[in-house]
Design a protein around this nucleic acid. Structure first.
Lengths: 224, 224
DNA sequence: AACATAAGAATCGTTGAACAATTCGACAAG
DNA sequence: CTTGTCGAATTGTTCAACGATTCTTATGTT
């Protein structure tokens, strides 16, 4: 009986009902992530609270949430704006990625734990084969999320989620976000190969170069 | 003229006045960090808003802020509680530390950039010499904050700040937090020495052992 | 006595309205 | 063209209210 109860405890997080503010935050997060709200755009309290049918107070709670996730920029007495990352932000995001993903690939995990990563690589390749660049982008993000997950830390998973969401903002101000991910499909495959064959240090070096390249490309194509 | 304006832009962050909610969050953060509010304790909206002379709405905004910093635990319809980290939380905090601080020491920085770290080591030693264990604790925290700062990333600095604040919660439920930091004064000195002499890999290995030891000690002395 | 149930109190979640504080744009004066 | 001033618009904060949920306590059943 006790073990049943222990099992149930795992589902408790799923059961947690959500407040209105959180649901509003979810909606806004999606809208931002899909580009409906553009970086730099101001989000009016009055129009949005009216549009969503919630009170201003509740909406402000949602704004706080997203502000802490760095998706919104809250300026006192001026309102909240969809965050518009600077070039320095991009550089810092890649600094963090090098640390988190670098530690992950050095971990030389058992081949069976690479399943999620392998799946993401395959998804990216399939999407590329049918010229679905949107799909390539999502699969690529999944790839790096799964990579960071090798660290086995919920906090790092969460940080990586936020980081990638923030990077998405950058993609939305690029002129040609679709072509960006394309060259990395092959690299993902190579990196996976190095990891599967246990060449941790080689994989780490390859990843560093990978991220350097991506950062350079991104900064160049970045115009704000 | 233009360069003057550019200089001024750097001061813009300092100018950002803070909202009442943020100031309330600052106060609560301090109170939690100093142990005035104990882990597990419930913070009543009514009594605290009354005590601080702010409205419930403003207080709730502050609660959201601290919830995102993992200092408060917000349970729907039950209220907010000072977070009481579980043993699994402690384990995860140390997982993150190994990644962030590990990447830092591997960076083999120029000796002059180690100044802040050296200062923290000296502070800890001076505090230990006069049996000021509170002082040893703060200096030790400063040491690790400075260590992580070698990554040169504002986001990592921020994450480290949060992480150490969360770790402070753990200290507050220990029976003997004062003696905990003592054995690490010497280790900090040794680690610094390894870094100064450019033995990055050796320093990394030493740090791993350092953190393993600290984690084990912490988990053992941890009762909830 | 142990347990389940139900009523009541306390607290949170959310709303709507109100007013002060601040920003922003326009327009007049120098 | 710059500087000051006014007014409209928006945010910051408070307050009061009410439904919803949880906690507590009393009651009744086996």
């Amino acid at each position: 009986m006790d073990d049943v109860v222990a099992d149930l405890a795992q589902d408790r997080s799923r059961l947690g009902r959500t407040s209105t503010a959180e649901r509003v935050a979810d909606i806004l997060r999606d809208r931002i992530s899909e580009g409906f709200f553009r970086p730099g755009q101001r989000l009016s309290e009055e129009s949005i609270s009216e549009g969503l049918g919630v009170s201003r107070n509740t909406l402000r709670e949602a704004f706080r949430l997203l502000g802490h996730e760095r998706l919104l920029d809250h300026q006192l007495n001026r309102g909240v704006f969809v965050r518009l990352p600077s070039a320095e932000d991009v550089a810092d995001l890649y600094r963090v990625r090098r640390v988190l993903e670098g530690a992950a690939v050095r971990r030389s995990p058992a081949p069976e734990t690479l399943a999620a990563i392998k799946e993401a690589v395959l998804d990216a390749e399939r999407a590329a084969a049918r010229d679905d660049w949107q799909g390539v982008g999502t699969a690529n993000i999944r790839f790096h999320q799964a990579l960071a997950a090798l660290n086995g830390s919920p906090r790092i998973d969460e940080a990586m989620r936020q980081l990638l969401a923030e990077l998405r903002l950058v993609f939305h101000v690029m002129e040609n976000p679709r072509a960006f991910h394309q060259p990395f499909v092959d690299r993902n495959r190579v990196l996976l190969g190095l990891m599967e064959s246990g060449q941790a240090e080689k994989a780490a070096a390859y990843l560093d170069d990978y991220l350097d390249h991506a950062e350079r490309l991104l900064i160049e194509a970045y115009a704000p």
